[in-house]
Design a binder for these strands. Structure first.
Length: 165
DNA sequence: AAGCATTGGTGCCCTAGATC
DNA sequence: GATCTAGGGCACCAATGCTT
């Protein structure tokens, strides 16, 4: 049973500190655990692919996160430098495909068409840093037509990790 | 039942800030 | 600059729960 507030008032600062320590330490462990849990959720599919049916320890989660980041870095380096605009366009295109895929499965066709038409409008340009030559940059990639986007969505596997974003 | 992982409590050490 | 103090982080250990 926890000491009453009156009893706590009577304690010396050192004793108060001694009582507070376990609480603070617990909060700290909780932070560690919740972050590990978030890592686990973020890497869940990767775990399923590499170690199906195996129980995940915290150490496993951390190891997998490290190897994922290493892999991700190596992939980005191999892909070479991209312009900000190119990077943005690829990201936009990918998000569009994801949205189309989702709508294909879940949304009513009317809503789907309206949303697709909305996405067909040119995306806002990314906030370019001062050095990036705005006008001289490469033209944005062609936008997907609704039919093409749906076809692309049909080809796309469900969200997998190791995606070069 | 044994082995392993996780959790919770505690002591020790380190560091930053305050005071002299 | 030396000393003191509070706060934070880490390591260790015991208890508990889970798996084989």
């Amino acid at each position: 049973m926890a000491p009453s507030t009156v009893a706590v008032e009577l304690l010396s600062p050192k004793e108060k500190n001694r009582l507070r320590k376990p609480v603070v330490e617990k909060m700290r462990r909780d932070r560690i655990n919740s972050s590990i849990e978030q890592l686990k959720l973020l890497l869940e599919q990767e775990f399923a692919r590499h170690q199906p049916n195996s129980k995940l320890e915290k150490a496993d989660i951390l190891e997998m996160a490290v190897s994922y980041l290493k892999h991700s870095k190596a992939f980005a380096a191999a892909a070479g430098p991209k312009s900000l605009h190119q990077d943005y366009s690829e990201g936009y295109s990918w998000c569009l495909q994801e949205a189309v895929q989702f709508l294909t499965l879940h949304a009513a066709s009317d809503t789907q068409m309206k949303l697709l038409c909305h996405f067909q409008r040119p995306p806002a340009a990314p906030a370019a840093p001062a050095k990036e030559p705005k006008a001289a940059g490469p033209a944005p990639p062609p936008l997907l037509t609704p039919a093409k986007a749906t076809a692309v969505a049909a080809r796309q596997p469900t969200c997998g990790l190791w995606r070069p974003w």
